[in-house]
Design a protein around this nucleic acid. Structure first.
Lengths: 142, 142
DNA sequence: GCATACTGTTATTATATTTATTACAGTTTC
DNA sequence: GAAACTGTAATAAATATAATAACAGTATGC
């Protein structure tokens, strides 16, 4: 799976952890442990999906614009990573006589597509707030 | 997802399509559209899991050693790709004060692990024979 | 026995993908 | 109009993936 999903989830959980706080791409990048530019790219996508609000200019940054009880990992996956379940490498060849060789790519495609749909159904259950709760639990275990 | 899964499924379906036929790595590689050496690597893994029998030497090759009605894609996934759902890239840093930064990697790990378990439950439903049937259906649609 | 045709496995090279970095235009604040 | 931000694209570096080569080991048939 796409690691942009990880960055998106981490960033939204961080914003949910500090509600009403503006966070800059620099602050988030430091927390996530990646480059600010990469954070901006992912967050730009989150804004287009409506999960955050961004503000340009001095004092600007990112702030949560959704209820963390309601937005699930499925929605974040859809925004950042849809289609990435299927590996880019494909088997078979279309122009062969063998029935298996020339249809396998299509059939595997179906299989990966189905699997991704199942994954979405599963991720639907976990909301941003649940991830934050798990973080809290993990902290308490120390 | 790992493309060795694709190669393994394709190869087993091919063997199921031509039961009682020895197929060499060269023949399978041609069908799958990859290098014979890669096929041998994946098939070596399939042998270790007991799904095929291999024979070295002249006239050797691979032959199915399981009931295609019984072996599911979950078993093939377990043999070839377990753990590949989780991206290798990890967010956060363990030695930080921020609760989110230092626990997110662990929490995401759980999430990917859960998702992979769900995937296995889903793949359990599809047996090798079903993939072959889907290939036949795809062929008929042409 | 030995040439031939296979698998098993590792090492190396080539290619593709991912991530980091740089750069700079646009925006808002002071 | 300087400073501190986002948005986006381009490039470079790092990593992962796939192809290829090489060769030891094994079975077959002459």
């Amino acid at each position: 799976m796409n690691s942009e999903f990880t960055i998106a989830v981490h960033s939204l959980v961080l914003l949910a952890y500090r509600p009403d706080h503006m966070a800059t791409s620099d602050m988030i990048a430091h927390n996530v442990n990646t480059h600010p530019s990469r954070v901006r790219k992912v967050m730009s996508c989150m804004r287009k999906s409506g999960y955050i609000t961004t503000k340009e200019g001095l004092g600007g940054g990112y702030i949560l614009n959704c209820n963390p009880d309601e937005v699930s990992l499925a929605e974040i996956y859809r925004a950042t990573s849809i289609g990435t379940m299927k590996p880019s490498w494909c088997s078979g060849q279309v122009d062969t006589e063998c029935m298996v060789a020339c249809n396998m790519a299509e059939v595997m495609d179906q299989i990966f597509c189905d699997a991704e749909q199942q994954l979405l159904i599963h991720l639907e259950q976990t909301k941003i707030i649940h991830v934050l709760e798990r973080v809290r639990d993990a902290q308490l275990q120390k």
